[in-house]
Simulated scan of single mutants.
Amino acid sequence: MNHPAPPTLRTVTGDLPAGSVTGPALAHEHLVLDLDHRGDGAAVLDPARHTTAVTAELTSLREEFGLGLVVELTCRGMGRDVRALARIAREARIAVVAATGWYYEPFHTPEIDGSSVEELTDTLVREIAGGIGTTGIRPGVLGEIGSHGDTPTAPEAKVLRASARAALATGLSVATHAQLGRGGIAQLELLTGEGLPAHRVSIGHQDLLDDPAVHEELAASGAYVAFDTVGKDGYQSDGTRLRLLLALIEAGHADRVLLSCDISRHGYLLDEGGQGYGHLFRSFLPEVRAAGVDDELIDLMTRRNPLRFLTGARVEEIRA
């Protein structure tokens, strides 16, 4: 009798059996980034200046909480540097999954305007199959595929459709950027309209949208609901995030939750007085536990769900 191959993660240092990740994951982070359109240098994680601090934080989280995996969603036009990601992964001894795709329209790269959905799909498939640039490092997820507003713009819709087709062609999953939590249902409709199963989709930044009905609709469809800006109090309080998360759990959808902090500027690093990548573990999850959520559900949301999202695995294929 033939048994299916165990689910595998594609990381910046090579393929990894999903079952070898025994600690929690951060499902939406940035370790290297450049979104500096204002010229103030704030929305930057520079590999030359900030990698030491990033690596130190991740190492500490591995030692203290068993952090095993970071899903790094810096894609085309966002300052992606997969060689730097590989160095961080090796030095911190943490698996890192790199991404491909395009962010929301203000950060689109020039080829989008003049390319069809088919041409953009081919660009993504080539990168997934052959590696990013000349590095040989292959992305393990499509993301963070962006839109802003309740309905994606025409270029954003084109990118979402291309991402869905590339995901179907390569077996990867799609993580989105829904600006301020808006437009997630429209994103999912576009992605699934191309034939991508909802369980291969994570809708981003839903903790910024105070609308439990939307969260429940996304989760009921089978998509993952990302509460991935934990600690960013300038956008939303963690108290509100906790209320929204508990509502989703109470509705029976803990198996659709992804959690992370989305560190997207150097001022968020511990080294610079920010909340750091560990805010989820040090501050937010203790509040979740205090609200009555047990360790089995914490493990589901922080480890098994990210692994299932990335690989498309069934619940029983990722060990409790």
Rank of each mutant, 00 (worst) to 15 (best):
L218D: 00
I263S: 02
Y235K: 08
R241V: 13
D233T: 14
Y224K: 03
D228A: 04
K232F: 12
Y235W: 14
Y235A: 11
G252T: 07
R265G: 09
E272V: 04
H266I: 04
A220P: 01
G234C: 05
I249V: 15
L246K: 09
Y268D: 14
D271C: 07
A226S: 15
R241S: 09
D238H: 08
Y235I: 09
K232V: 08
R241W: 01
G234W: 11
G234H: 13
L248V: 01
Y235V: 07
D262N: 14
G231H: 02
A254N: 12
G222S: 11
D238C: 05
V230A: 02
D228N: 09
G252D: 09
E250L: 05
D228I: 01
V257F: 01
A219K: 04
E250T: 15
V225A: 00
A251R: 09
G276V: 06
R243P: 00
A251F: 13
Y268P: 00
A254V: 11
L259S: 05
D228K: 02
S221E: 09
C261T: 15
L259I: 11
G239S: 10
G274L: 05
G234I: 10
L269W: 10
H253E: 10
D233Y: 07
A219G: 11
G267F: 05
L258M: 12
A254P: 08
D255Q: 11
L246D: 04
D228P: 03
L270D: 10
